[in-house]
């Protein structure tokens, strides 16, 4: 599948943002003064909103995007929109009440934490529900998104504490978060990647009973939209090297920096981690093969 920047930025940044709002809702965020509540809200909502805006760039008709909130009964993309908007609205109320009355409305916070996880889940299900892309169509896919989102939130909270109070109390739990996220992603890489596709050019054409089927002539001389969108091949040559870089930036380097004890290095971790997530997400798309390519001469 073609890795479009708009979608990579959308899933990465909104994933991080909802991870932040999850911990914010649970009350994990260290607040020195009440104004910090507003600051953190801006941080979280900005990450989420820039991510969502980026996804709008992917649309042919962004002005009609509001219609996407209507089909939540059947469409995961629609559910994602509804959950995202609900989370953002609740966060505004949550922070407003907290700021005005000086006390955290913890029940609403818990609700926001659940909504944030739900939003990340719905984002992942957009991909995990597509039977046409075997690599995504795996029960672990939403768990990868969830683990990376929650982990990204923790990493950023660490940096936040370093900036606000000059030290971090979350080193241990962030370590656990990173190890779990690394574990889930590694298992996904192994399991989702090694699935054998039932579909072949023979089942695609229904001619398997006659013999082996190969493409002799494409329907057209130039690459068409389908091939451009779903027949992306550039990354496959570099998959091994890129996944090594992704693992190093997303998990290994942040772990090392986390225990370095050097304040400015800990503040850097979110940037390193996020760069890793961008590559991880790029591979998520670039490595995925769509069943339609079987009609265009590929064999999975």
């Amino acid at each position: 599948m073609r890795p479009a920047w708009s979608i990579i930025v959308f899933t990465s940044l909104s994933g991080l943002g909802f991870g932040l709002l999850f911990w914010f809702g649970l009350g994990f965020v260290v607040i020195n003064e009440l104004i910090d509540v507003i600051l953190f809200t801006v941080l979280g909502v900005m990450a989420v909103s820039i991510g969502l805006m980026s996804s709008l760039l992917h649309l042919g008709h962004p002005k009609r995007a509001w219609r996407a909130l209507s089909q939540w009964r059947s469409s995961w993309l629609s559910r994602e929109g509804v959950c995202a908007v609900a989370t953002i609205l609740c966060t505004f109320i949550y922070s407003g009440v907290w700021y005005i009355y000086g006390e955290r409305p913890s029940a609403l916070g818990l609700f926001i934490a659940i909504l944030s996880l739900l939003t990340v889940w719905t984002t992942a299900m957009i991909y995990a529900s597509l039977r046409t892309v075997l690599r995504w169509y795996h029960p672990l896919t939403p768990w990868v998104y969830l683990a990376l989102s929650v982990c990204g939130g923790l990493i950023t909270l660490n940096a936040w504490e370093q900036i606000i109070v000059g030290q971090s109390s979350l080193i241990e739990i962030t370590t656990i978060g990173l190890v779990i996220a690394f574990g889930v992603k590694s298992i996904w890489w192994k399991r989702a990647g090694s699935q054998q596709s039932e579909s072949t050019p023979e089942t695609a054409t229904g001619l398997g009973s006659l013999g082996q089927v190969d493409l002799l002539m494409s329907p057209h001389t130039e690459e068409n939209w389908l091939q451009h969108e779903m027949g992306f091949v550039v990354a496959r040559r570099h998959v091994y090297r890129l996944s090594q870089i992704a693992v190093a930036l997303t998990f290994i380097l942040p772990l090392a920096l986390l225990w370095s004890g050097i304040s400015w290095l800990i503040m850097l971790i979110p940037i390193v981690h996020f760069a890793g997530i961008l590559i991880e997400r790029w591979l998520f798309f670039a490595e995925a093969k769509h069943v339609v390519t079987l009609f265009y001469g590929e064999r999975h």
């Binding site: 599948m1 962004p62 219609r67 892309v133 779903m230």
Partner: peptide
């Protein structure tokens, strides 16, 4: 008139 051009339906279709 209601299509936003997100392309998800084309991803969901196995036949192109």
């Amino acid at each position: 008139d209601h299509c936003i051009g997100c392309g998800l339906c084309a991803w969901a279709c196995p036949y192109g």
